[in-house]
Design a protein around this nucleic acid. Sequence first.
DNA 1: AATGAATGAGGTTTCATTCAT
DNA 2: TATGAATGAAACCTCATTCAT
Lengths: 210, 210, 210, 210
Amino acid sequence: MAIEDRREKEKAWRRELILKSAIEIYTEEGYHATTMEKIAQRAELSRATLYLYFRTKDEIFVHAIVSLSEFFHELLKDIYDRRFVLKDTILEELWKSFQKFYFHDPKTINATLYFHQSQMIMNLPEELRLMLDRTGSKNYEMLWKIMEFGINEGYFVECNPKTLAEVVWTSFLGIIHLENSKKAMGRKNHLDITWALAYTILSKGIIKKE
Amino acid sequence: MAIEDRREKEKAWRRELILKSAIEIYTEEGYHATTMEKIAQRAELSRATLYLYFRTKDEIFVHAIVSLSEFFHELLKDIYDRRFVLKDTILEELWKSFQKFYFHDPKTINATLYFHQSQMIMNLPEELRLMLDRTGSKNYEMLWKIMEFGINEGYFVECNPKTLAEVVWTSFLGIIHLENSKKAMGRKNHLDITWALAYTILSKGIIKKE
Amino acid sequence: MAIEDRREKEKAWRRELILKSAIEIYTEEGYHATTMEKIAQRAELSRATLYLYFRTKDEIFVHAIVSLSEFFHELLKDIYDRRFVLKDTILEELWKSFQKFYFHDPKTINATLYFHQSQMIMNLPEELRLMLDRTGSKNYEMLWKIMEFGINEGYFVECNPKTLAEVVWTSFLGIIHLENSKKAMGRKNHLDITWALAYTILSKGIIKKE
Amino acid sequence: MAIEDRREKEKAWRRELILKSAIEIYTEEGYHATTMEKIAQRAELSRATLYLYFRTKDEIFVHAIVSLSEFFHELLKDIYDRRFVLKDTILEELWKSFQKFYFHDPKTINATLYFHQSQMIMNLPEELRLMLDRTGSKNYEMLWKIMEFGINEGYFVECNPKTLAEVVWTSFLGIIHLENSKKAMGRKNHLDITWALAYTILSKGIIKKE
DNA sequence: AATGAATGAGGTTTCATTCAT
DNA sequence: TATGAATGAAACCTCATTCAT
């Protein structure tokens, strides 16, 4: 069965290649200008071949997003699993994970933000929308359980853990968003400094002092 | 000249109508699905008529965004002008302004976010990109001067005012962003609660205590 | 009634202005790019006003052509009237008239050629086509009578006067045509030399020697 | 590779079909009225398919013209190659070639004349303009070398060979032009007679007698 | 499995012409 | 009389997707 194995592998590899190509084009030219033709060219395949791997153009993007989302889930899960070790450094650790997440694949993160910001999602076929929903929920839940832990253990100020999860998450989102619009405008950015100050403020606001 | 006056007024009114229609369609269906035909239908005009008011589809959106941006500028300027009265409540006031801004016209704000998030801007003709740039810069500057005031007067923690402006602004952006993606997913949201907690945390992190 | 007179004059003057403007734009940009808007701008009138003077865009051009054709008719008639004076120099005189005609208003001549060459004429409303036809026929007849004179008087070789008229006329047409395509190609031209040689050959072929 | 071969052939055949369809519509309705839709219908293809073969509408016409021009080039070259055999009958032979050329594909010749007469060419993209230019120049050069031969060998009257080439060429052009405008006017024509007389006159003017 | 070719559906834009003032 | 505004009709072109090989 070695031959079948190899085929399987090749197929998986091609899928990845297509996803990567699509995201690259998206990054360079935006969603609107990302045509199947361009994706195919970059992947050195024919346009028709793309349809052997994905049924529609949107599916390509949704799969890229979901795949990234799963990577993020692992990061979060890792933190949650180590929560009793991390204790009150858990917020700092989380923030680091956000950064790690971002630098792991900023291109796809941007595509994700785009999908969520545009009304794209609403026009997606039910099935794809559910995929995005499920994967997103899983991460949100993880995040929220981490917050719950912090509050329950008395490390964080008392408040609704779900809301806190959202606030932390939006801090991250906002930074990415600003980063992007600056890039689009052709302006330089000092992402690291913003990131540092954001964390300083956030932690001051969240972490209880004795 | 009464007749010319009325014409002028009618023209301005039509312009507004077109902008509003475009944004509405955008809100309901997303940028890609916002066709000139649909805008025209909603405005009860012919497609060709739109071109009497705006030269391209992008121009419509850019003008909507700029117009909103100018409204925001007034809010910011008002706060800055009253800074010596507001004193240490200036952050709270600013946060309220953000909310006011958002509820004034959430639809156009979303379109704005979309434009900045997508690579749309990069593909815009120079002239339109400059329009967006200029108007955005003005607001950023205002925000930054407000922060500077807070720091110089000793109300806020010491830090780089520009970076602080960014952090405050990204907090707002992030919330909007999350709100949108929730809406797109068809989920309910408790925006007010998030907003409140975000401010609590932010102010704790920014405002100096004696 | 002086006031009515002046109005009449002004109206005629405007008509001319419109014709001139249309032909100018045509010369600079070609028929396809000659829009009513551009004609109006050049004539410093509003687009709608053009329709007070001409019912359609084609009408403008047809009138310009007809007007020029009438000028040409006068030239030809003049030669014919002086035929007994001119005698065997009548061919030379005719050739000079062609040149005079061309330099009188090359732009409109080109427009005329265009109309005749394109299938434009076929798509014209009956009425306009007839206008062109009538005026063209008149000139053709004149030309043919001049040839007839030359043949009957024994100045020209014996042949069918109508056919001869055509041959002479096509010699002229061909030169203009070449001139135009050279211009369109951006090449320089030595029109006068071509003209001279063409006449030399033509006259050698037509004029009887004793 | 038989399969690829056939594909190649089919593709070439389709190209020809499109060119032919375009020229036909042009002949019947004129350039302006020749829409991609109509061309597609006549070729029994979809509008989009046309764009697989030619990038723009203009490209279709330019290619048709160039292709015809190449046919003409062969005719001219053939005469030039046989010049020492033809000797003083070379002018007659040339004139016959003109006729042969015209009857080979009068429709495309007319389209060619149209392109050269209208300012169309000026508005063409550089690349297409060059194509026309190059192919035109080649033929002009051939014609001029034939004239040069006639003059040098003492068959033709002494004069500038380039100018003579132009005069001969314009004689042809003029006849075609007249033919066309007559057709457009719905008049009958006796092309052969005109042609014969034109040649008689031309040869009398050009060929030296001893 | 892979692809060249074909296409339907739809997008933005232009322009001659009409009409109310 | 003159015109600003409006529009129907149509043009060119693009692209996601399907199909025959």
